[in-house]
Design a protein around this nucleic acid. Structure first.
Lengths: 229, 229
DNA sequence: CCGCATTTGTTCGTATGTATC
DNA sequence: GGATACATACGAACAAATGCG
């Protein structure tokens, strides 16, 4: 499960391994890490070495330590943590605009490169949305909606784009979620899903981009409305 | 210049201050930091404390220490470092595509929001390019060209977009630079500059986006050509 | 509320390796 | 090669916060 360290600085090695274990979801966000003593045995290093590795990850924003309590996972990756911190200084609208930029490009690339498998994945998402809409299950609808957008981006086949989009979406989601519980803004709209799907299916770059732009415009208006309250 | 530390962990405070000083360009990338003893006096902390702060920043990718030589600045921010590491795992084309997404959106937003001051800045960049072109000064031309693109993005007035674009450009630039010295690909092209400027001036979103797309397509072809060799 | 075990935080010392002059 | 300074890793002791019975 846990490899013995080899060369390089021991601290770096331990930190890297912990980072990987987090990225690989062995320890998920919110989870409490095993106490120092256990980790010392597993990694077979001294307490100081382990503590320094942990401290590095704390500074990077991946972990958070609490005296007497334990160490918990805060972010899934260094990029994630850095983006979170950075995005916090930005406004929601700025984040939204960047997300639009990424998704628009992704939709165009998806239209060019989509495989049959991508189309099947998208159809599954659309059906999930319909299902949630029929059941009036808002939570499922939102998560299915997000999944649909992510699947579009995934079809772009550009990992960097996918990772950046993931972060923009996460921040936006946690923001929207706070207000969604008070008053659901989305009346289970899903027309755009089908239109965008068709555009990607027909490999029509321009209209794919247009639908994303349209969808985003609606979301933007909603957020502006929320912010004004 | 350098504030005395207050509360929190001393290490965190020192690390934060160093981080800020780097972000504020007090120490630029490539610069060598003052020797430990000087920093100890300036921050008024113990050697161990300072060393730990430096180590945290090394792990974050902002600094690099070399025994006997000293510590040098590697990145301008944590986001920068995290993106660099992430981008390294991506291909050049993926980076280029993300850059296109960001710049296209930025150009559209610039067309909408540009101020008179933005237009003046852009004109300066264009003139610098012309000048470099006349002098056949490739280095100046490239840096002026990059400056022009950055100025377009800056006119979008979206700080998050600006910061992300900065990173995409940096990586791309260091890549292009390696091959540029061997054989200059760009025959000092600058037609696009003027066209894009006019589109932004006239606040024509669509044609601004189109010019960026066009420009990027040319760059993409060049890079594909390089990669094939 | 107290006392205790658990867990992280801090600081010291020591040994060994390594770069530089 | 020797001397010096620095880096790395380990260990131990004590402090402080937390949670539980």
């Amino acid at each position: 499960m846990i490899l013995k360290t080899n060369r390089k600085s021991l601290v770096e090695q331990v930190a890297e391994q912990i980072e990987q274990l987090i990225e690989q979801k062995h320890w998920k966000v919110g989870d409490k890490l095993p106490p120092e003593m256990e980790l010392i045995e597993e990694f077979d290093v001294s307490r100081n070495t382990l503590r320094e590795a942990v401290r590095a990850l704390v500074h990077a924003g991946l972990l958070e330590t609490k005296q007497g309590s334990g160490t918990i996972v805060r972010s899934t990756s260094a990029l994630d943590a850095a983006l979170k911190r950075h995005v916090k200084k930005s406004t929601m609208l700025e984040t939204l605009e960047v997300r639009l930029a990424l998704e628009k490009q992704a939709a165009q690339m998806a239209a060019e490169r989509r495989t049959e498998s991508d189309l099947i994945d998208l159809e599954v998402c659309i059906n999930n949305c319909k299902e949630a809409s029929a059941k009036k299950d808002l939570e499922q609808f939102i998560s299915s909606d997000i999944q649909f957008h992510k699947t579009v981006v995934a079809a772009s086949n550009n990992q960097l784009l996918i990772d950046l989009y993931e972060n923009m979406t996460e921040v936006l989601f946690s923001f929207v979620q706070d207000f969604m519980t008070i008053e659901p803004l989305f009346p289970f709209e899903q027309g755009i899903h089908l239109e965008l799907f068709k555009a990607i299916q027909k490999q029509n770059k321009e209209s794919a981009a247009a639908y994303v732009e349209n969808d985003m415009e609606v979301l933007k208006e909603s957020i502006i409305k929320i912010l004004k309250e």
